[in-house]
Design a protein around this nucleic acid. Structure first.
Lengths: 232, 232
DNA sequence: GAGGGTCTCGCACAGTGTTCGAATTCACTC
DNA sequence: GAGTGAATTCGAACACTGTGCGAGACCCTC
């Protein structure tokens, strides 16, 4: 006996007859709540309160919380743009995508935890995937390499931005003492002279700038590496 | 007023005087439970039961659940190996690291959700970071580029493996019908002919092999890209 | 009015992490 | 051995969580 794979997107949507509360509205409110209070800040009761409704009323529009997250998750993909590679070239197209993806994650920190945890089957995600495929086709990839290049670029952006988001989440609200921070980490790395050297070098005062530089460095590397694969 | 950054590793460990239950033992049991039942399967009460102890007894050894996760998390890093780049060359060293990192994540699926969410300040993580630094130094990087290269490689492996782990988690236990699966996804991608083409091409019967190929492709790209940075 | 869908929501259940304080056990000195 | 203070255990309780169930309310069509 085989269980079937389920996702909101694979089910028929409920008829949108309702004039009052709608699924759309619930999802929008959920995204707002997630942006304000993070992944753990979203509870059905809180969301209900925000919509002046009982918590369990939401279950009429949404099967369960996971499904709601799937819906909210797809909204994040809407903010990503893949310029037409025929006009600007595939490298430029990929670069813009990478930055907009990073931007979207930073703007919706909760999505970092969902990326790679939920299947991205929503219409917005599909749209991005479709355009990315075309992009790498234009670049010259064919067959499975199109998807491999696709996965590589996505993995890089996701893997680079995810810790960044986590850092902001744990450190962003409280302001910390840069020197004390450095000293703490240094103590933890006491046995590793190489590491210590870096810790005392890195500027803890403007981590944002450092991370931006790191992102550029890596993106350049990944794109160069992909280009190299084309040559073979 | 500035709040200080806290992590288990920055505090003095409790004196290990106890002959009976120890922190070590608790962490080991936690890892076991996590491996068996996943991140949501770990609760203080279950863990207590596994150790024939009351749930709240654990709070003597561990400040809270997050701290316990930090401790368990560091165990995963212990499984990663970075061969001496002076002996095998930096590319070989990096390749072995990448594979062992992927292996560790696949073996402890719950760690994928923690990577990039928790600061990696444990001794095992520090050890890996230290060796990676030396590796990229040997490769020829200097200054901040060492850390940038470091972050790039880690981001790639993490970003590539994380969705893989998620897939196994949601699909691994239930066996699904490959054709039905394909049909479902195809329906969701109905409006995107490019995507559809891929979906019907991809082998859904052996996703493991496909993913391994994708990983190799991307790793090669990243390493080539990093090598390219050295030339400039 | 009667029926029947669409929609709302209070209650209840089984869980969760964690605090508190009382009870117990252990190690050591007199 | 008795006594004392520290180390360690843990039951009860609190404030949460997601969600199933069933009773009721609304509204449209005969």
């Amino acid at each position: 006996m085989s269980k079937s794979f389920t996702s909101v997107w694979l089910r028929e949507p409920r008829k949108a007859t309702s004039p009052g509360r709608s699924r759309q509205e619930i999802v929008r409110a959920a995204v707002e709540l997630l942006d304000e209070e993070g992944l753990n800040g979203l509870s059905m009761r809180k969301l209900g309160a925000k919509l002046s409704a009982g918590a369990t009323s939401l279950y009429w529009y949404v099967a369960n919380k996971d499904e709601l997250l799937e819906l909210a998750y797809d909204e994040v993909w809407a903010a990503m743009t893949v310029p037409d590679p025929d006009e600007v070239g595939w490298r430029e197209s990929a670069t813009v995508l990478a930055y907009s993806m990073r931007q979207a994650m930073l703007r919706h920190p909760w999505s970092a935890d969902l990326l790679g945890r939920l299947p991205a089957l929503g219409p917005n995600a599909m749209h991005v995937a479709d355009r990315m495929r075309r992009m790498f086709k234009v670049a010259g990839f064919s067959g499975m390499d199109i998807d491999f290049a696709n996965a590589t670029l996505t993995a890089y952006v996701f893997g680079m931005t995810s810790p960044e988001v986590a850092w902001d989440a744990t450190m962003g609200d409280k302001d910390y003492d840069a020197d004390e921070m450095r000293a703490s980490v240094a103590r933890a790395a006491a046995q590793f002279p190489d590491l210590l050297e870096r810790i005392n070098m890195t500027s803890y005062d403007d981590p944002r700038a450092v991370r931006a530089m790191a992102f550029d460095f890596g993106l350049l590397s990944v794109l160069d590496g992909l280009e190299r694969r084309l040559a073979t």
